[in-house]
Amino acid sequence: MKPAVRSWLLHAGLSIVAVLTMTPTVWMVAASFMSPGEASSTPPPFLPAHPTLEHYAALTDRLHMPVYFFNSFLIASSVTLVSLLANSMAGFAFAKYRFKGRDRTFRLLLSGMVVPAQVTMLPLFLMMKKFGLVNTYVGAMVPGLASIFGIFLIRQFVRSVPDSLLEAARMDGAGEFRLYRTVILPLCKPILLTLALFTFMGMWNDFMWPLIIMTDDARYTLPVALANLMGEHVLDLELMMAGSVITVLPVVILFLAFQRHYVRGIMLGGVKE
C-alpha cells in the first residue's frame, strides 16, 4: 500500500471513531435546546429548529437544579480540600520518616485497595445513622476524607525530594510541621493539583454513596437528583438532556482546562514500584 493511501485510511479511521465518540455528547447538548417533544419527532432532528433555553429555565426555577449544583459543589470541594491535607501529610510521613513498622503499615494500606467500596457501605450507613449523619453533607463526605490512592501518589512523589533539602531546613531551625508547610507542600504543587482533580471529579460523579446517604430531595447531589428526575420526567427528553448537560459540564471544563495534570495521574497510577 502506498503511504498516501495508508495515511488517508488511518485518518479516516481516526475521524470515524471521533464522530462515534462525540455523537452522544453533541446530541445531548443539541437536544437540550430543542422545544418540548421536538427530539422525539420523526425523523429525529439532530439540531434544534428554534433553539430555546426553556428547559434550563425550568430546571433552575421549578426543579431546584441550583440547590443540587450547590450540594455537589460543596461536597466535592470540601472533600478535595480535607483529603488533600490528610493524604499529603500521610504521604510525606511514609516517604520521609523512619519509624518502626513503616513499610509493613504501608503495604497493609495498599492491600486495602483490593476491597470494593460497596463492602463498606452497609455498616457505614448504620454508623452514620447512629451519629445522626444520614442526610447530611458530612455523611456524604465521610468515605472520601482520606484515600489510599492519594497517600500512595503523594508518597511516590515526595520520595524523589532530596533529603538534603529537608536537612537544610532543619539546620535553619524549622520544626517538622513548618518543614511540611514550607518545603514539602510547595514542591508537591503539581501532584497536589493532579490529586485534587481526581478527587473532585470522582466525588462530583459519585453515585452510589450519595444515593444511599441522602434521603431527602433537598440534599441530593446532581447525579442522584438526575436519576430521581428521570422517574417523573422520563417523557421530557429535552429537559432531561438539559439536566445532563448541567451535570456533565463542570467536570468537562475542569478536564479540558487541566488535561495535562489529570492525565499524569493516570500514568502514575499505572506505574508499579
Binding site: V17, A18, T21, M22, T23, P24, T25, W27, M28, A31, A39, S40, S41, T42, P44, F46, M201, W204, N205, F207, L222, P223, V224, L226, A227, M230, L237, M240, M241, G243, S244, T247, V248, V251, V252, L254, F255, Y262, V263
Partner: peptide
Amino acid sequence: IYFLPVVTSLVAVAIVWRYLYHPAHGL
C-alpha cells in the same frame, strides 16, 4: 476527544444513551 466520555458522569450519559436506544425515536 476519545478521553472526554471518561470524565463525564455515568448517570448523565446513561440517561443520554437510554434515549439514544429508544425503539421509536432513538437516533
